[in-house]
């Protein structure tokens, strides 16, 4: 898949993973696994980018005697998901054109 397209898709997927409730790194990977495989090395920069762009915040909480980082979606992150949904309608329209059946001569 095209790198830019994959990047956009993964960012939206990560935002979607924390949309309903705050989550942590490993849980995000597990939740996404049935749909898209993502490694921790791929996830980490995405989380950092989303944080830098104000789409999510990070807080550290104690869990089982150690610290764990929880990611919380911000309004900008929700707007990003809405925009993704809108954009995707256009993508689907172009897709249906690209994959239309060939006319037999």
């Amino acid at each position: 898949m095209d790198i830019q397209m994959k990047r956009g898709l993964l960012e939206a997927a990560v935002l979607s993973a924390i949309r309903d409730s705050d989550s942590w790194g490993y849980q995000i990977i597990k939740d996404m696994k049935p749909y898209v495989e993502i490694s921790e090395s791929t996830l980490y920069p995405i989380l950092r980018r989303l944080e830098a762009s104000g789409c999510l915040t990070v807080r550290t909480e104690e869990f089982g005697g150690r610290l764990r980082k929880y990611y919380h979606i911000l309004p900008a992150g929700r707007e990003r998901l809405d925009a993704f949904r809108e954009d995707w309608k256009e993508v689907l329209a172009v897709y249906s054109f690209i994959v239309r059946e060939e006319k037999t001569p």
């Binding site: 790194g25 921790e40 150690r66």
Partner: peptide, 16 residues
């Protein structure tokens, strides 16, 4: 931050 992230990941997998 990077080391914390990977440490947490490894710990979570071990908890799993």
């Amino acid at each position: 931050r990077s080391l914390d992230y990977y440490e947490e990941m490894i710990d979570d997998r071990m908890d799993d």
